[in-house]
Amino acid sequence: SKIRITWGDKTWEWDGDDEEVWKRILEWARNLGDEELWRHVKEWVDK
């Protein structure tokens, strides 16, 4: 399956939905430097 994140007018996609993928997404969000996006992603990961 895919994980799709839409933020503003951008959309990103990742293949898979296991823990490793979420770790990569969390790292990606942090590297993007958008605090609010990172917080949202972290909330999803922690669920």
Rank of each mutant, 00 (worst) to 15 (best):
residue 19 E to S: 11
residue 16 G to P: 11
residue 38 W to M: 15
residue 37 L to R: 01
residue 34 D to G: 05
residue 6 T to G: 04
residue 35 E to D: 12
residue 45 V to Y: 15
residue 23 K to P: 08
residue 1 S to Q: 14
residue 44 W to R: 06
residue 23 K to D: 15
residue 8 G to L: 11
residue 4 R to T: 12
residue 36 E to T: 05
residue 14 W to R: 00
residue 13 E to G: 01
residue 18 D to E: 13
residue 42 K to N: 08
residue 4 R to S: 13
residue 18 D to F: 12
residue 19 E to Y: 13
residue 37 L to N: 01
residue 27 E to W: 04
residue 3 I to M: 04
residue 5 I to W: 04
residue 13 E to L: 04
residue 17 D to H: 10
residue 1 S to T: 15
residue 7 W to G: 01
residue 6 T to N: 10
residue 9 D to V: 01
residue 31 N to P: 02
residue 24 R to E: 08
residue 22 W to H: 08
residue 42 K to V: 12
residue 27 E to F: 05
residue 47 K to R: 09
residue 32 L to E: 14
residue 4 R to E: 09
residue 42 K to I: 13
residue 20 E to S: 14
residue 32 L to Q: 15
residue 45 V to S: 10
residue 16 G to A: 15
residue 44 W to Y: 09
residue 6 T to C: 09
residue 5 I to C: 04
residue 17 D to C: 15
residue 26 L to V: 08
residue 33 G to N: 11
residue 27 E to A: 09
residue 24 R to A: 13
residue 45 V to T: 06
residue 12 W to C: 01
residue 22 W to I: 08
residue 41 V to I: 15
residue 16 G to F: 15
residue 18 D to C: 03
residue 33 G to E: 07
residue 2 K to A: 09
residue 8 G to T: 02
residue 42 K to Q: 13
residue 36 E to P: 08
residue 23 K to G: 13
residue 10 K to R: 11
residue 25 I to A: 03
residue 28 W to F: 06
residue 6 T to Y: 09
residue 45 V to L: 09
residue 22 W to T: 06
residue 10 K to W: 11
residue 36 E to Y: 05
residue 20 E to K: 09
residue 12 W to R: 02
residue 28 W to G: 00
residue 23 K to R: 10
residue 40 H to K: 14
residue 46 D to F: 04
residue 1 S to Y: 08
residue 26 L to R: 03
residue 27 E to G: 05
residue 24 R to M: 13
residue 11 T to V: 12
residue 40 H to V: 09
residue 30 R to A: 14
residue 13 E to D: 08
residue 47 K to C: 03
residue 18 D to K: 07
residue 30 R to M: 11
residue 37 L to I: 07
residue 2 K to F: 09
residue 14 W to D: 01
residue 35 E to Y: 06
residue 30 R to I: 10
residue 34 D to P: 04
residue 32 L to V: 14
residue 4 R to Q: 11
residue 14 W to C: 02
residue 3 I to P: 01
residue 31 N to S: 14
residue 17 D to M: 09
residue 17 D to Q: 11
residue 8 G to W: 13
residue 29 A to C: 06
residue 12 W to M: 08
residue 7 W to S: 03
residue 45 V to W: 12
residue 46 D to K: 08
residue 29 A to G: 03
residue 28 W to D: 01
residue 13 E to F: 05
residue 34 D to C: 10
residue 46 D to R: 03
residue 25 I to Q: 00
residue 5 I to G: 00
residue 47 K to W: 04
residue 5 I to E: 00
residue 6 T to V: 10
residue 3 I to E: 01
residue 47 K to V: 11
residue 13 E to K: 01
residue 25 I to S: 00
residue 22 W to E: 03
residue 9 D to M: 01
residue 31 N to I: 10
residue 22 W to C: 03
residue 24 R to F: 08
residue 23 K to S: 12
residue 6 T to K: 08
residue 46 D to L: 05
residue 5 I to L: 12
residue 7 W to K: 05
residue 28 W to A: 01
residue 18 D to V: 11
residue 22 W to F: 10
residue 15 D to W: 07
residue 12 W to A: 04
residue 21 V to D: 03
residue 38 W to K: 13
residue 5 I to F: 13
residue 15 D to K: 03
residue 10 K to C: 08
residue 37 L to C: 04
residue 25 I to L: 06
residue 18 D to G: 14
residue 45 V to F: 15
residue 31 N to D: 13
residue 45 V to D: 02
residue 36 E to G: 04
residue 7 W to L: 06
residue 13 E to T: 06
residue 35 E to N: 05
residue 37 L to M: 06
residue 35 E to F: 04
residue 44 W to V: 08
residue 13 E to W: 06
residue 10 K to N: 10
residue 22 W to G: 04
residue 21 V to Q: 05
residue 43 E to R: 07
residue 47 K to Q: 13
residue 14 W to F: 08
residue 40 H to Y: 15
residue 41 V to T: 01
residue 39 R to I: 14
residue 20 E to H: 14
residue 4 R to Y: 12
residue 25 I to R: 00
residue 41 V to L: 12
residue 8 G to E: 10
residue 12 W to E: 04
residue 4 R to I: 14
residue 15 D to G: 05
residue 31 N to Y: 10
residue 1 S to K: 15
residue 8 G to K: 07
residue 40 H to T: 12
